[in-house]
C-alpha cells in the first residue's frame, strides 16, 4: 500500500485556485522531488499536506497511511508521522529550542503511545542528533530560531526531523539560502535519515540539492499541475534546458 496517495487535488488560497489537479503516489522508503518555477504551487502543496489554515481543498483527496489526511488537524498529522520542513522557519521569542523540541517530541510520542522521555533521556537523545547537524548547545538554549542565520534555521529544521523521526518528511525549499557547506551538512543529515520505511518529498527550485540527495522520482510542477514525471535524470535535463523548455512545450 502506498504511504501517500494524492488524487486530483485542487486547492485555493484566498479564493484563487493554486493547485489544479495533482496526482502523486509515494511508496514507503521512496524519495520524491518536486521541482518547479516560482509560483507553480510547490509551497501550497506542502502547506495543504501539513494542514495550514487558509489553504482550502476544493476537490480531490489525500490518503496517508490508510487514513484521510485532510480530515486531521495539523498536530494530528504530525502525530501520524508527517513532517513539514519549513521554507521560512518561524522565530518564536521566549520559547527555547530545547523546550520546544521536548514539548514536540513528547507530544508525538503520546500519539505513538510511547512514554514521554524524562529530562536526562531527552538531553542525551537530542545531543546525539544535534552533533550530527553541528547544532551547538548554545543554539539549543537560545529562543527558537531567534537571531539564527539562514543556515542555522535550516539545520534546526533537519534536527527537528531527526528528533521526531517522521514517516513522511516534506522538505520545502530546504536548500534556499544555504551556501555549499551548509547545504552539504543539511543533505548529510537528510541522507542519514533515509530508511526502507521512511519516505521523503523534497520540494526545490534548483537541481543543486539533488546532487546530494538522490531522488527515486522527480516531478515537474508548473501552474498547479504536474507536467512531467521521471527518474533523477529529469532533474539534470531541467538544469540543462530550464523550466521553459518543459512548461513552454506543454503549454504549446
Amino acid at each position: 500500500m502506498a504511504l501517500l496517495e494524492v488524487k486530483n487535488l485542487h486547492a485555493s488560497v484566498g479564493g484563487k485556485e493554486i493547485l489544479k489537479g495533482i496526482d502523486l503516489v509515494i511508496e514507503p522508503g521512496e524519495v520524491h522531488a518536486i521541482m518547479g518555477p516560482n509560483g507553480s504551487g510547490k509551497s501550497t502543496l506542502s502547506y495543504v499536506l501539513a494542514g495550514r489554515d487558509g489553504y482550502e481543498v476544493t476537490e480531490g483527496s489525500v490518503q496517508y497511511d490508510g487514513q484521510d489526511l485532510l480530515a486531521l488537524a495539523p498536530d494530528e498529522r504530525a502525530g501520524a508521522g508527517l513532517f513539514l520542513g519549513f521554507q521560512y522557519p518561524v522565530e518564536i521569542p521566549g520559547v527555547t529550542t530545547m523546550n520546544f523540541l521536548k514539548t514536540a517530541l513528547n507530544a508525538v510520542r503520546q500519539y505513538r503511545e510511547e512514554k514521554p522521555l524524562d529530562a536526562m533521556q531527552f538531553l542525551k537523545y537530542v545531543r546525539e542528533r544535534a552533533a550530527m547537524l553541528n547544532v551547538t548547545d548554545d543554539m539549543l538554549r537560545r529562543a527558537l530560531n531567534v537571531g539564527f542565520s539562514g543556515g542555522e534555521k535550516k539545520r534546526n529544521e533537519i534536527l527537528q526531523m531527526a528528533v521526531l523521526e517522521p514517516t513522511l518528511a516534506v522538505l520545502d525549499e530546504t536548500d534556499s539560502g544555504l551556501d555549499i557547506d551548509a547545504l552539504k551538512v543539511v543533505a548529510e543529515g537528510v541522507n542519514a535519515m533515509r530508511t526502507p520505511e521512511r519516505s521523503m518529498l523534497i520540494i526545490t527550485h534548483y537541481q543543486r540539492l539533488l546532487d546530494y540527495i538522490q531522488p527515486d522520482h522527480v516531478h515537474v510542477l508548473a501552474n498547479g499541475r504536474i507536467l512531467r514525471s521521471g527518474g533523477k535524470e529529469l532533474a539534470l535535463e531541467l538544469e540543462e534546458k530550464g523550466y521553459g523548455a518543459i512548461t513552454g512545450a506543454e503549454a504549446a
Binding site: D53, D75, R77, A78, L84, F86, G94, V95, T103, A107
Partner: peptide
C-alpha cells in the same frame, strides 16, 4: 497570537491549547 507561530508549533505535533499556552507564557515571560 501569531498565526504563523501557532501553525509552526502544531506542525510539530503540539496541540492547539498547549501551543497557545506556550506562546502566551513566552510573551509574558519576556
Amino acid at each position: 497570537l501569531d498565526a504563523d507561530a501557532l501553525f509552526y508549533l502544531r506542525a510539530r505535533g503540539i496541540d492547539l491549547e498547549t501551543a497557545r499556552n506556550l506562546l502566551v507564557a513566552a510573551f509574558v515571560d519576556d
